[in-house]
């Protein structure tokens, strides 16, 4: 059960108030007719499924009804940032792991299987 910071309500809210809407930053081609079938198929159906950093579109459905973006780690489920539509993520790569600590990634390996 996540707790998500809504960038419009400016506070942490419970997951039950949100709906996930898939991968973020999928832009509809400006001129669909100029797309090949393959390009259009990519836009419609193909999504990333990364192990690690993932940018997602969510909507605060039972709140302010605003869509926004979430940067989430798909292994630890940590939410690293949330940001408004039209903004770009500031977290785009794994944080560097210092030598003394174990990365969350290793610790949780395979656990969700």
């Amino acid at each position: 059960m996540f707790q998500i910071y809504c960038p419009y309500c400016e506070e942490l809210r419970e997951e039950e108030e949100f709906h996930p809407k898939g991968q973020a930053h999928i832009v509809r081609p400006a001129n669909p007719e100029a797309c090949s079938d393959e390009e259009w198929g990519d836009y419609l159906f193909f999504r990333d499924n990364p192990r690690g950093i993932h940018h997602e579109l969510w909507v605060h459905a039972v709140g302010c009804r605003k869509f926004f973006n979430v940067t989430r780690h798909t292994v630890s489920y940590a939410i690293l940032e949330t940001y408004k539509i039209g903004e770009q993520p500031s977290v785009t790569a794994e944080p560097a792991v210092s030598e003394s600590t174990t990365s969350t990634d290793d610790v949780r390996q395979g656990v969700r299987a």
Binding site: R28, F67, I85
Partner: peptide, 13 residues
Amino acid sequence: LEWLELWHQTEWP
């Protein structure tokens, strides 16, 4: 309603 908001907020603000 959410569908309309999706297009308005993300593609055609």
